[in-house]
């Protein structure tokens, strides 16, 4: 059957033509296209990876931020607490100091008052003594102005002496 016999000329041109097409297309089409496809696949993959990485980084950043925020909040609380403690301490100290000062002053005042009082009492005593002596002197002077009375006194005194 003629249909099943490969013709020489057609086979020749087919092999020649196909090899030329294979060569030209390999050089000018398949390699550039396949390389471009690979490159594009790679760039898409890279972009996807970058997106995933960015997402992770964002999450990290967010958690970092939250951590920072929490830390800041903690720090603030700590500082506030410390301030409160310091304030209390200062107040207490001041109060103690003031109390002590007041006490000291009171003591001093009390001592001063006591001293003054004692001085005044001594003074008063001296004055009283002086006054008494003076009074006694005056009284003596008055009472000893006449002889009768002098004698009576002497007698009185002597009486006392005798009794002793």
């Amino acid at each position: 059957m003629e249909l099943l016999k490969p013709a020489f000329g057609l086979t020749f041109w087919m092999v020649l033509g196909f090899l030329i097409v294979l060569f030209l297309l390999t050089k000018f089409a398949w390699k550039p296209i396949l390389n471009a496809l690979n490159e594009r696949d790679k760039s898409i993959e890279d972009a996807l990876n970058a997106a995933i990485k960015a997402k992770d980084e964002m999450a990290n950043l967010k958690s970092d931020n939250e951590k920072l925020l929490a830390e800041a909040r903690q720090e603030r609380d700590k500082i506030l607490k410390e301030a409160r403690v310091t304030k209390d301490n200062i107040i207490n100290e001041a109060r103690d100091k003031a109390t002590a000062e007041a006490d000291r002053l009171l003591t001093l005042a009390r001592e001063g008052i006591h001293n003054e009082k004692m001085a005044a009492i001594t003074d008063l005593k001296n004055q009283v003594a002086l006054l008494s002596v003076e009074i006694a002197e005056k009284i003596m002077k008055q009472q000893l102005a006449d002889d009768g009375k002098q004698k009576a006194l002497v007698a009185d005194l002597l009486k006392d002496v005798k009794m002793n």
Partner: peptide
């Protein structure tokens, strides 16, 4: 036809 089609396709990749 093949050379024309595929070189022009290759060009669009470039």
């Amino acid at each position: 036809l093949m050379i024309w089609i595929f070189t022009s396709v290759a060009k669009s990749y470039k």
